[in-house]
Amino acid sequence: MSFINYSSREINCKLVYYGPGLCGKTTNLQYIYNKTRPEAKGKMISLATETERTLFFDFLPLSLGEIRGFKTRFHLYTVPGQVFYDASRKLILKGVDGVCFVADSQMARWDANIESLDNLRINLQEQGYELDKLPYVVQYNKRDLPDVSTVDELRAELNPTGVPDFEAVAPEGTGVFDTLKALAKQVLAELRKGA
C-alpha cells in the first residue's frame, strides 16, 4: 500500500520479488544496487543464512526521481523462496503495491515455479489481494543455462493472462531493469488512476 505524503511531497511504494528458492530474486536486487547511482539508493539489507539463502527478506530502497514535483521512492523486497519459509513470505507481502514473479527457467525447476506461483496467489488472497488486479510482471531468469524450458512453454504455464514478461540473466543484468521498469510503470499508472 503506497504511502502518499502531501506534506513532504513524496510517494513510497513497495515492490516484492517472489519466486522459488534459488531462482535469482536476491541477484536481481544486487544487480540493481550495483548499477544505480549512490544518491539514488540506500543501503541494501539482506537477512540471510550463512549460505546466503534469504532468511527473511532483502530490502533495497530506491529513489527514482521526481514526477510533477513528487519524489517517487520504491522499496524493493525479496521473499525467501524456500518452501518452509511460508510464514515469512506472508509477512513480506503485506502492503505490497506490485509483484514481480521470478521464474527459474531450468527444466528441473518446472514444478517449483508452479508451486511458488500457486503459493503467491494463495498468500495474496489471504490478505484480500488478487494477483490479477495488482501491478504484476513475470521474469524468466537463468536463460544462460543449458536445459531450460522455452519461453513459450514457460509463458503458457506461468503467464496465462499475458502480463509484461521478460527473459533475464540476473547476474549479468540482462532483463533486470526492463523488469523493474515495467513493474514501476504499472504501479505509478495505478496511482494515477487514484488507486
Binding site: 510517494i11 547511482r37 529513489s63 526521481g65 513528487f70 531493469f177 488512476k193 487514484g194
Partner: peptide
C-alpha cells in the same frame, strides 16, 4: 482517492525516470 500527480502525468514522465541521465543512473 485522489491522483497525487494531478492527472497529467504521461507515459513519457514515467519513462524519463529510467533514462540514462535520470536520477537513477
Amino acid at each position: 482517492a485522489l491522483d497525487p500527480f494531478g492527472g497529467d502525468i504521461t507515459d513519457d514522465d514515467i519513462d524519463n525516470l529510467f533514462n540514462d541521465d535520470s536520477d537513477l543512473f
